[in-house]
Write a protein that binds this DNA or RNA. Sequence first.
DNA 1: CTCGCAGTTTGCGATAGCGCAAAACGGGAC
DNA 2: GTCCCGTTTTGCGCTATCGCAAACTGCGAG
Lengths: 236, 236
Amino acid sequence: MAKVDTSLVAHLPLFAGVTPEALDEILREARSARYPKNSAIFEQGADAQSFFLLLHGHVRAAKTTPTGEQIVVRYVAPGETFGLAMAIGAARYPATAIAVDDSVVLIWPTSAWPRLVERFPSLAANTLQAVGTRLQESHTRILEMSTQQVEQRVAHALLRLAKQSGKKLDQGIEIDFPISRQDIAQMTGTTLHTVSRILSGWESQGLVESGRQRIILRDPHGIVVLAERSADSGAV
Amino acid sequence: MAKVDTSLVAHLPLFAGVTPEALDEILREARSARYPKNSAIFEQGADAQSFFLLLHGHVRAAKTTPTGEQIVVRYVAPGETFGLAMAIGAARYPATAIAVDDSVVLIWPTSAWPRLVERFPSLAANTLQAVGTRLQESHTRILEMSTQQVEQRVAHALLRLAKQSGKKLDQGIEIDFPISRQDIAQMTGTTLHTVSRILSGWESQGLVESGRQRIILRDPHGIVVLAERSADSGAV
DNA sequence: CTCGCAGTTTGCGATAGCGCAAAACGGGAC
DNA sequence: GTCCCGTTTTGCGCTATCGCAAACTGCGAG
């Protein structure tokens, strides 16, 4: 019952240093599932019964305060894992995961993790690397929020999204999943109003083209100028 | 040449699931060093030649922008590791580490890490746990910076410091290492002026006692009231 | 083709907190 | 005991950004 073709995932960093046979064994413990656009994959606070590997689509991880404010923790791109609560010894998910596009994921039961890392220590090392990278990114984000103004933060956020999930078009680079002003606000610690104003400004300068949940960084102007702006206060 | 007594570190989470013999072998690869107050242990951008375990003292990790602004990434408490650049596959330190008190550390060469994790997979798992926890804390910090006002953030920061490194006194809980207004500002994304104003306010309300690089949360009022304030906007 | 609504734009007043400047303070060095 | 310097306090004007409110728009459902 090899539901998943190993060749689809063998090249992922997560499985670096894992033999084909081992990979086969690892995949045998997983099942796959499809989540339609805008459906929840797991909710913050729920029992962390599974962890996930995104195969297709895009997933937004968001954290909510008791008073209802949200922030976007990250967007998950294909090939990345998410929902690794067990890796930090947490019994519950610290955030909510929503498919922002029709998405396909591999799902392992959390209970399988200890056995897997014991049999395949590379998994732990590879996961450590991924989590460490995310920690770095978090620190960069904190640095930005502390030292830069909103416009620079938005510029940097868009550039990162374009890099992570950009689709090359004739006019420029389009962010390859639906994203609202509100989402960007929640990534940069501001309000959708301010984001809207900033994007309007850029649009009238010909730096971006944007519409309903859709943003294109115009090449070359947009990308170059935004990079300058995001660097003005010395983002890394 | 067992420089380090295993009994001093055997109980640390980092070494959970490591046999005494293995621990002995691990420690044989380390050397210890003492850093006087205010000395740099490593600088941001330098080659990550070593990673560290803090035995005594306190260390501040700070990140600097090209324009010179700094933020405090974290304070390292005894028993914690720092400088794990290799864990994220970075060749250079992403932050600067300064001893804020006379400090004693164990030092391993970065080059020893791959061999250590191969021989002792628990190390990777334990480190993953630690890094994962720090990632969580980073996310909480981002959430706070996005949704709370400065006073709440400062309240929460002090409570965390008190919990991590608080020394019980008759009057209350003292943060057990020198910390300036500027440091707190750099932890909470504000300016030393604002921190000073806030602390002055709290002092006149009898919630804290503070002086030069010294802060005491007065028990019970200070701790209780600050906890309320930090929770007002729903911090986790 | 039309309607309805989620998402977006825009205006405007309010304000938290910054930035600068200057004075006060206190601990350590000698 | 005195001096000096790093830290802290405090005042004040300024502005980036919020928060609310209202109008607009384009997509998708039917």
